[in-house]
Design a binder for these strands. Structure first.
Lengths: 178, 178
DNA sequence: CTCCTATGGTTGAACACTCAACTCAACAGC
DNA sequence: GCTGTTGAGTTGAGTGTTCAACCATAGGAG
């Protein structure tokens, strides 16, 4: 890199505000989940992805992808979740290297107990502060960036954001904010 | 909370995209700084704030505020930075509970060495993907959220984003992306 | 002055994440 | 059959963050 492309004032201001939001918002989300549901946000996401999968079961590697975890992180996390009785691991018949992770009934219950408080937190910290136009703008920017960061389009490619299938949308199991 | 205000499809989609950006973007920023400058992003921010302060010196509590750290985090972090020789702590004369943190010459050099790679990373991951209108929108949303999350307006209140004073903007010491 | 509370800052244990190294199985090519 | 490579997943050490407890000083109120 011969010459650094420094940020101009507008960009700098944008980056710092974005950074501040990131820190303040996720710190509070994290704290709320930790206090009220005894789990970090990363674990919550894992439970959400499992709850949306057929049979509440996914291969470890697939679960790592959909929950935006590294393999290592997921491995450590699932070990913890297994201790808590919220997830169980079973060997994979067809590929003996592999392993299935399944959300237990207790895990689903924990997720359902955690969801309302979490969703309320997200709503009050994020959506309550924004106009409908700002929400649209935020979605537009975010999806553009997701496409950029993953080097593939967000839509209509499908489930790279781990969205629930309509079939999974039964009443009680609807922890909408992953 | 009698009735949970669940997220509708638009909100859910927005939240998940935002979450994805947050994870992917900051993971890469973190990795780049760790690999190329041997410091986590949080430490980089601390060095930036110090570099922008008069005499490159700040009280610990003020530094914690401007770098969005908890007191405890800052205390641990500065201990590390002191081991590295990048920061030094001195006792405060007027308030004997207090302590000053000062960016050393070596610390400034480390910051200047780290800045170009970091800025380039931020630019390529964030700004290169967005149109000028999207940058404006992102800034608008971010500043709205900062105001909401801090319960005070971003502008014209002043330095709650830790912006540099014009006096500090000399050429070489310009690690623009905190 | 004495008490009492608030503030500035540090400490250590618990925990999550990263990185690199590793195991074991699948799947080539020969 | 072997051999090398790739993929799935785990492990342990190192590091950063959090939380709660803590110490010391400042700044009142009485």
């Amino acid at each position: 890199m011969a010459h650094t492309r420094w940020l101009d004032d507008e960009e700098q201001r944008t980056w710092r505000a974005f950074l501040t939001v990131q820190r303040l918002l996720f710190e509070r989300v994290e704290r709320q989940l930790q206090n009220e549901a005894r789990m970090p946000h990363g674990y919550y996401e894992i439970l959400v992805r499992l709850s949306e999968a057929p049979d509440r079961t996914l291969r470890m590697s697939r679960l790592a992808d959909t929950s935006l975890s590294s393999r290592s992180r997921l491995s450590h996390a699932v070990a913890r979740l297994e201790e808590a009785g919220w997830v169980e691991r079973t060997a994979c018949e067809t590929d003996r290297r592999g392993a299935w992770a399944r959300l237990t009934d207790a895990g689903l219950a924990a997720l359902q107990a955690a969801a309302p408080g979490h969703v309320e937190t997200v709503r009050s910290l994020l959506f309550d502060a924004l106009t409908p136009e700002q929400v649209v703008a935020l979605r537009d920017v975010s999806e553009t960036l997701v496409a950029h960061l993953t080097d593939r389009p967000v839509w209509p490619a499908g489930d790279d954001t781990g969205c629930p299938t309509p079939a999974q949308a039964d009443e009680g199991a609807c922890p909408e904010a992953g």
